[in-house]
Design a protein around this nucleic acid. Structure first.
Lengths: 194, 194
DNA sequence: TTGCCAAAACTAATGATATTAGTTATTATA
DNA sequence: TATAATAACTAATATCATTAGTTTTGGCAA
């Protein structure tokens, strides 16, 4: 009675994103998505290649969106200011799109070219932001890894309610970033102190 | 022909841990566990209360083991040395038990008393380790949150292969911890520098 | 304008999973 | 030795992903 509803991949991903952001990536199933779209689940195969493919597409969409927002916020800034803006943008994305953020973490296939590339774009943005910071070569790579760890760790713990104390998390975040910057400078300008 | 094989909860969790550590927490299903134990999956209900309960038990087991190893390594140390030992022990646990570590992160029910308590034991260990560091009140809480973020972020990114460059990860980890310590001292002993 | 074809929906069917209900056999204990 | 609790079992159901094959529709070419 009603073939041709007019679905396409973007519409699918939009609906899947809503499910992921509101109920978690686990809740994104072909059954739940089909129900939300008012179609039968086998019909989804006209647009995607099964559940793993759907989640992969979500991860791609998430990475693109993240890279986009990061570069937009960092643009025109430099030094500490750029790092602060970068960190804030990263946190904001994770809070605004918890489901997409979750999807990004599920990068299984290391040989997936497109996913690698999309992830690379985000990492490149970190590298650009941290560049011109007086760090060269290996030291720069270590610093980039450190800030990625810091950001991802905070975001993950916050999302899963890992921080018990009722102390303002935004303050923690700000302080954490400043501590990191202070540490980088201390390490750069000399050895360890007491 | 063969009821009474002699299974009990510890044996179950041991087998489930092996699956989780070798194939990931996703691979821990009642079907896979039953197959490994040579029984039919409904028989598992004599020991556990379904799949969610099994994963919860795994998380509990993981938290206990982690708290145990952390306190063992930190014992007798203090100051920077204690922090370094703590971080190393945390990393070692995550590497040795990737499946258990994964299980820990899946803490869904915030009202689960036992899980809260087990998680609290780990956090308390962080607090004890960071204590006597010249940080008081809120500052101490922020510092604890920061180091948890750092450790969890690094461990997660490493596990999912998030670090692309073929640069020694152990070096990054060491450096990261030292940078954190330097940052904490810089923040404690004065404001921001240039 | 008409007819055809590709695309997008569908139904039907299969296999895997978790879970429940009810059954049987064994072990421990009274 | 008899019995009761326990730990295995079989049978059955519901949900999910996936495949195969079918129908309908909308656009495009003759």
């Amino acid at each position: 009675m009603s073939p041709r509803i007019g679905l396409d991949l973007p519409a699918l991903l939009h609906a899947a994103t809503e499910i992921a952001d509101s109920q978690g990536i686990e809740a994104v199933t072909l059954a739940s998505l089909a129900q939300k779209l008012q179609i039968r689940s086998p019909s989804l195969y006209n647009h995607i290649n099964g559940l793993p493919d759907l989640r992969r597409q979500l991860a791609l969409r998430g990475l693109e969106l993240l890279a986009d927002q990061l570069s937009r916020e960092v643009e025109g800034r430099s030094g500490d200011d750029a790092v602060r803006a970068f960190c804030a943008a990263y946190l904001n994305f994770a809070r605004a799109h918890p489901g997409l953020y979750e999807a990004i973490q599920r990068a299984p296939e290391p040989e997936d070219k497109l996913l690698q590339q999309a992830g690379g774009a985000v990492v490149d943005q970190v590298i650009r932001t941290m560049a011109g910071y007086g760090l060269e070569g290996d030291a720069a790579i270590h610093a980039v890894r450190a800030i990625r760890s810091l950001l991802h760790g905070f975001v993950s713990l916050e999302r899963q309610g890992g921080f018990g104390m009722p102390l303002d998390l935004d303050v923690t975040f700000q302080l954490m970033v400043e501590t990191f910057l202070a540490g980088v400078k201390a390490m750069r300008d000399g050895g360890a102190s007491t």
